[in-house]
Design a protein around this nucleic acid. Structure first.
Lengths: 169, 169
DNA sequence: CGAGGATGGTTACACTTGAAACTATCGAAC
DNA sequence: GTTCGATAGTTTCAAGTGTAACCATCCTCG
């Protein structure tokens, strides 16, 4: 127990970590990410980046590595590494663009699709469990708020470079 | 086969990454954390764990390492390391409990408080900027939703051990 | 007292991650 | 065609992180 008791933040501006939204978001995200990761890491030995790549390629096949990076909010180094391990485990197939031979074209293999088919329901059911404490209207609001905050965070981010999802259309 | 480049997720259960709440939370948190970290990492060479420890000790002085860990949602190894570097940079003072000599007692030094005084306003102003796209009522709702989701995530987390903040009172 | 177990904290090692440098290809300008 | 700069992707090396093993101290129960 804090000997002096409490709150020694003598600034005019008080930062209460436990009410500080960035901090709380980070706590929430950590718990959620770890929970989901556990579900697939154990059974399929997938890392988080690997799983993201599978998920995005399941939905948008034939992306290049950089396009994957944009959609996944990962940087290209992380994508490169995850792609290599997915190629090694034969869950991914890589071709190269005829016209531009720098550009890779990534698709899931049958094995990759199989992994997706088994992991996706687990992920979705986790999300369902997580959200079912909220009312339908709270869920809608949550979705809207997250969207707004992401947009806003991007606006005020000091040119963070790559950790930005959603390719500009 | 969708060579057209769209939605090949032929499962009955479709995972739309861009609508998947855990994913969106992770994107949001990444952008936010990196933005804030940049602010203090550059000027004060503080890592995220270091900054968290400073913030929590500014508010609750004389905690032990484990109490810090609980409040920061960090594990004790991370705390140990961050404490060491903060001791090395003279931003922290460590004493040991008279009654229980295993137990450390951590406090900010004058230098540590000075860092806090300069970083806290930056963090708060970032939060303000982030949230000022939302109406006052949306902000309240957001706070409530995050709280609910953290509780829920803890409930359904498969005994993740330590990544859990808020000591039980 | 002293053995066994719990608790606070640190160390060791393997693995992941990030920043920067590097290769290779492309497009355009001269 | 050659040079220059941009783009796609990889490699490298250093730093960060997690797990497990490890000391030291404390507690308790015989």
């Amino acid at each position: 127990m804090a000997a002096t008791g409490d709150d020694d933040a003598t600034a005019g501006d008080r930062l209460h970590l436990e009410r500080f939204v960035p901090y709380r978001l980070s706590v929430l995200t950590n718990i959620v990410s770890m929970s989901i990761a556990q579900a697939y890491a154990r059974e399929f030995s997938l890392s988080i980046p690997q799983w993201r790549i599978i998920a995005v390629l399941a939905r948008f096949p034939n992306l290049s590595a950089i396009e994957v990076a944009e959609r996944c909010a990962m940087d290209k180094v992380a994508v490169s590494r995850a792609v290599q391990s997915l190629l090694a485990s034969k869950r991914l197939v890589r071709a190269y663009d005829k016209g531009d031979r720098r550009r890779s074209i990534l698709r899931l293999s049958a094995a990759g699709r199989a992994v997706y088919m088994r992991v996706a329901p687990v992920a979705l059911s986790y999300e369902k469990q997580l959200l079912d404490t909220l009312s339908a209207s709270d869920r809608r609001v949550l979705g809207r708020l997250i969207g707004r905050l992401i947009d806003r965070a991007r606006e005020i981010a000091p040119e963070t470079g790559v950790t930005t999802a959603e390719p500009r259309p």
